[in-house]
């Protein structure tokens, strides 16, 4: 069995099948990119994985355990961390306190948690901002804070939801460097991203989604040249030419 595996995920919103039978695997230590046009169901898949939405059908296995049906905080305890596309900083707390709140999960005492939070903050390059109130941060730092907070729960699998959206080119390079650094520290990553530069440079494998179904799967190059993917993004006309 794969390290992380989804089997026939189905999520219905009323009559709309937002996710309709999605199955894919992720191997330990790799970065798996999840791409697809707007509304194709990428974020919904994340919400299903971390238990924010209940599944209508399907199963999710992680590290040999079935995690579908567990509550969100239990799934985090199992070792799956996530960031939110629409960032959710704990606004009236400082950056360090944000990270500290999540560092408690893997710590027995407060001093242990403070140590872990400090370490995670410096790992993610936020040391200079640690005493700032989270609500005062610009978007790039908020996105980085999302990652830092998730990392402080010591995840084995990290779900990154559009952490590069809205960043300028310099910040983009920093974000890519951070994602690679996290992978190199032994964390498996599933990343949802629209910016192709990020997907193409960091992903080991890409899964393309459209209309809540898996369209293509393979290396970044294979998926980018896949006729169905081009049609989904650019329309049928470009497909024949490509």
């Amino acid at each position: 069995m794969a390290y992380f595996e989804t089997l026939g995920l189905v999520k219905l919103f009323g009559g709309l099948a937002a996710v309709n039978g999605v199955s894919f695997d992720v191997n330990e230590g790799e970065i798996c990119g999840l791409i697809g046009p707007n509304g194709s169901g990428k974020t919904t898949i994340f919400n299903l994985i971390n238990g924010y939405f209940p599944l209508d059908k399907g199963e999710i296995y992680f590290n040999g355990n079935k995690i579908s049906g567990l509550k969100t905080h239990k799934i985090c305890r199992e070792g799956i961390g996530r960031t939110f596309q629409i960032v959710k900083p704990l606004k009236r707390m400082t950056v360090l306190d944000n990270v500290l709140a999540s560092a408690f999960l893997r710590s027995h005492t407060k001093s242990e948690a403070v140590e872990l939070a400090e370490k995670t903050v410096s790992f993610c390059g936020m040391t200079s901002l640690k005493d700032k109130v989270a609500g005062s941060l610009p978007i790039a730092s908020r996105k980085r804070l999302e990652i830092t907070r998730a990392m402080a729960t010591k995840p084995k699998l990290l779900l990154l939801d559009e952490t590069a959206a809205g960043l300028n080119p310099v910040e983009l390079e920093e974000a890519i460097a951070l994602i690679k650094k996290i992978r190199d520290s032994g964390v498996t990553i599933i990343i949802v991203e629209h910016i192709m530069k990020v997907i193409m440079t960091v992903s080991d494998r890409v899964v393309a989604i459209n209309h809540g179904m898996v369209l293509a799967e393979g290396t970044p190059e294979e998926v980018a040249s896949h006729a169905g993917v081009i049609a989904a993004y650019l329309g049928e006309d470009y497909c024949a030419a490509g």
């Binding site: 924010y52 900083p89 707390m93 729960t153």
Partner: peptide, 11 residues
Amino acid sequence: EDQDAAESIGI
């Protein structure tokens, strides 16, 4: 501050 964020960091 944010119940969903709190839940997702294991609270």
